[in-house]
Amino acid sequence: MATITIALMDPPYEAETTTTAMRIMDAAVRKGHQVNIFAYEGAVNLTMKDQEAHPNPVKGTTAEEEDHPSSSRFIAGLLATEQVDWINCGLCVDERGAGNWIDGARRGAPADFFAWTQESTNTLVIGTK
């Protein structure tokens, strides 16, 4: 099985790259691969614990009816597989006050990302545009 390291930069709900990256993670996990995620800059907000579902006033539906999954809920599912290791860039977290995250994510630094890349089958960098 392969080890795939991915660097992400986009915050949640701003770019399709976030969804695509999570689709790639999901496919990799289903195929039995190990996935390492380095969340850099705005991507550290993907795992924030206080994300909540919301209603849709246009449709008049409640939060429960919408069952709107947050990025952290998707990621919690991925982390539960124990095939995903998730590091949030510590300095990026500090300057955003984004330290309250879901269980399983951990704090790290670019040096951790570099170490991962040296032992991975492949590295995919997905920058922000």
Binding site: Y40, E41, L91, E95, A109, P110, A111, F114, G127, T128, K129
Partner: peptide
């Protein structure tokens, strides 16, 4: 390729900054 991320911190551009950090780490 994306330039001028904002001017809120000395580390913009963050990729230049990271590249320098990784060089210092032996990359």
């Amino acid at each position: 390729e994306r330039a001028y991320h904002g001017t809120l911190e000395e580390q913009d551009d963050t990729i230049l900054w990271m590249s320098h950090i990784l060089k210092n780490a032996g990359a």
